[in-house]
Computed example of a mutant assay.
Amino acid sequence: MQPRQREDEKWAEQIKKERQFEELEHLFSKAKRAQENVLHLFHEAWQGNRA
């Protein structure tokens, strides 16, 4: 394998890892928003029961 080809493969692998990491960040952000929504709904329900 030529050095240039190896270098290109390393860059391609790095880009793939970065995209996977960005996707995980996006999924984590969605999960965090969903968690906040559930906690908000729970809080509203709790306040409703106390009124």
Rank of each mutant, 00 (worst) to 15 (best):
M1Y: 01
M1L: 05
Q2D: 15
P3S: 10
R4E: 15
R4N: 06
R4K: 12
Q5M: 09
R6C: 08
R6E: 12
R6Y: 06
R6P: 02
E7P: 00
E7M: 13
D8M: 14
E9H: 04
E9T: 03
E9I: 04
K10I: 09
K10W: 05
K10S: 04
K10C: 06
W11A: 14
A12H: 07
A12Y: 06
E13G: 04
Q14M: 09
Q14K: 13
I15K: 15
I15R: 15
K16S: 14
K16I: 04
K16P: 00
K16G: 07
K17F: 08
K17N: 13
K17I: 09
E18S: 11
R19D: 09
R19G: 06
R19K: 15
R19C: 05
R19L: 14
Q20T: 10
F21Y: 09
F21V: 05
F21M: 08
E22Y: 05
E22S: 06
E22G: 02
E22A: 13
E22M: 11
L24V: 08
L24S: 11
L24T: 05
L24G: 05
E25M: 10
H26Y: 04
H26T: 06
H26A: 10
L27A: 11
L27K: 14
L27V: 04
F28E: 12
F28H: 09
S29Y: 03
S29L: 04
K30Y: 02
A31C: 06
A31D: 09
K32V: 02
K32A: 10
K32E: 14
A34M: 04
Q35V: 06
Q35Y: 07
E36Y: 02
E36R: 09
E36W: 03
N37D: 07
N37H: 02
N37C: 01
V38M: 12
H40T: 00
L41Q: 15
L41E: 14
L41I: 03
F42K: 13
F42N: 12
H43G: 01
H43V: 01
E44D: 08
E44Y: 00
A45I: 01
W46E: 13
W46V: 04
W46M: 12
Q47K: 14
Q47I: 05
Q47D: 07
Q47V: 10
Q47N: 12
G48N: 13
G48L: 14
G48S: 14
G48Q: 14
G48T: 10
N49H: 10
N49Q: 13
N49L: 01
R50G: 02
R50Q: 15
A51Y: 08
